[in-house]
Design a protein around this nucleic acid. Structure first.
Length: 416
RNA sequence: GUGAACGUAGCUCAGUGGUAGAGCUCCGGCUUGUGGUGCCGGCGGUCGCGGGUUCGAAUCCCGUCGUUCACCCCA
């Protein structure tokens, strides 16, 4: 920074009228969440670092190199929330929410912070809309969670939508798979990149997602996780897919789908938008049946998703709707002395529920009419000395241009 | 974090070594009380920032910050 300060790297301001598009998106999401009977939850912007280390997992890029961590004046190790699920799980444990009627169904809108290299659609601070369902291991919940997100995207009319889904299995499935996968990788270590070799024991599943051709050829011959699913995990996965079919939600199963948090079990899924380039994932999530216990709570299954507000905004460029400004009426006062005299009149219109804009700069009538038009006012109320002395105002319909004289004391009724 | 491209008015961009430009936006006038089209005028720039080369730098060189693209990762 030198001279004029600017927003920090990877952050950005959202200005009107862009904020109207954003609010339409958020309003729509809230409406959908309420339709499925979710309740809002708010958690702190920062947590004890331990929440994310234990929750998200030490093998993840998020915990290893992307967290905004700091020590406060009391020597506490804190971290700006890099994702939403761990915080919600922590709150669930802290407040004994397992004693509530289960499952608990929650939604949130919150900023997330990750120190990554910024790119289009990837920011160091971004907002996520998300839901979490805690306390039921039924595949019905998996189906509902995916349906909520699909419903939201449909209402927003997200173009070129894709859904990939997979099952990570339960811990037993993963352990059995690991025993077969690691020897395969070690036998073929010569064909792996150095980076890939480093992950063999750390998080070998990640390699299924590699874009390196040589690594891919090794993974193509590797034992797929799907072959090692336990009977329970397999049945669960089948039930979820059946439910999606029943709801006519299109999906593609993809056993190479690997997500960035260690807590995922069984169902994982990711929605993509085809016109977003490299950052095509607009929302994703999965089941995390061990997370609550990991954070010191009773064994409690859970599942949720997060979807990125900024990426949705990009995906909806050109097709998204704005929230209407709601401005109904522009009051144009021609005589300077009347500007103060008529403040109660304007106040009265607003009390009557009419959105009113008026000139705050001392513009001339022509400029005020232009202002009224550009702000989208439906009607203009013009009051000059002549009108005021007669106790009337001129009301102009901005669409048709029709004008009529209205007594000042009837203005609210006529405009309403 | 690595590699590459780009950074000129609020916005979109032109200008590639010789006095900083256009369109749009905004403000005002033509119309002394009437918008969305027209005409005229005006406001607005440390050419991202710092250093260097040069008689002279928006232009060439170095550094730095930011954006974008790819890798990586993810929303």
């Amino acid at each position: 920074m030198s001279g004029r300060p600017s927003a920090p790297r990877g952050t950005h301001d959202v200005l009107p009228p862009e904020t109207r598009r954003r609010e339409h998106l958020i309003d729509t999401a809230r409406a959908v969440f309420e339709m499925y009977a979710y309740e809002a939850i708010v958690t702190p912007t920062f947590e004890e670092t331990e929440v994310f280390v234990r929750g998200v997992g030490t093998s993840t890029d998020i915990v290893r190199k992307e967290m905004y961590s700091f020590t406060d004046q009391g020597g506490r190790e804190l971290t700006l929330r890099p994702e939403g699920t761990a915080s919600v799980a922590r709150a669930f444990v802290q407040h004994g929410m397992h004693k509530l009627q289960l499952p608990v169904k929650l939604w949130y809108l919150a900023p997330m912070f990750r120190q990554e290299a910024p790119q289009k659609g990837r920011f160091r601070e971004h907002y996520q809309l998300g839901i979490e369902v805690l306390g039921s291991d039924s595949p019905l919940v998996d189906i509902e969670v995916i349906a909520v997100l699909a419903d939201l995207y449909e209402r927003l009319r997200v173009p070129k939508l894709g859904l990939r889904i997979s099952s990570m299995g339960d811990p037993d499935s993963r352990a059995a798979h690991r025993e077969a996968l690691i020897p395969h990788l070690e036998r073929n270590a010569g064909r792996l990149t150095e980076e890939a070799r480093g992950r063999i024991t750390e998080n070998p599943l990640r390699l299924f997602d590699s874009k390196d051709q040589s690594v891919q050829s090794v993974m193509a011959e590797a034992p797929p996780l799907g072959d090692y699913l336990s009977a329970d995990a397999r049945a669960h996965y089948g039930a979820v897919l059946l439910g999606l079919d029943k709801l006519a939600i299109a999906y593609e199963t993809d056993s190479t789908l690997v997500r960035g948090m260690d807590y995922y079990t069984k169902t994982v899924f990711e929605f993509t938008c085809g016109n977003l380039g490299a950052q095509s994932a607009i929302g994703g999530g999965g089941r995390y049946d061990g997370l609550v216990e990991q954070l010191g709570g009773p064994p409690t299954p859970g599942i949720g998703f997060g979807t990125g507000v900024e990426r949705l905004m990009l995906a909806l460029e050109g097709v998204g709707e704005n929230r209407p400004s709601g401005l109904r009426c522009y009051v144009a006062i021609l005589d300077d002395d009347l500007r103060v005299e008529l403040l109660p009149l304007i106040g009265g219109l607003r009390s009557a529920g009419i959105s009113v804009e008026t000139d705050l700069r001392g513009r001339g009538l022509k400029a005020m009419m232009k202002h009224a038009a550009s702000r989208g006012a439906e009607q203009a109320v013009i009051i000059g000395r002549r009108d005021y002395d007669d106790g009337v105002a001129t009301v102009r319909d901005m669409r048709s241009g029709d004008q009529q004289q209205v007594p000042l004391d009837q203005l609210a009724e006529v405009l309403a």
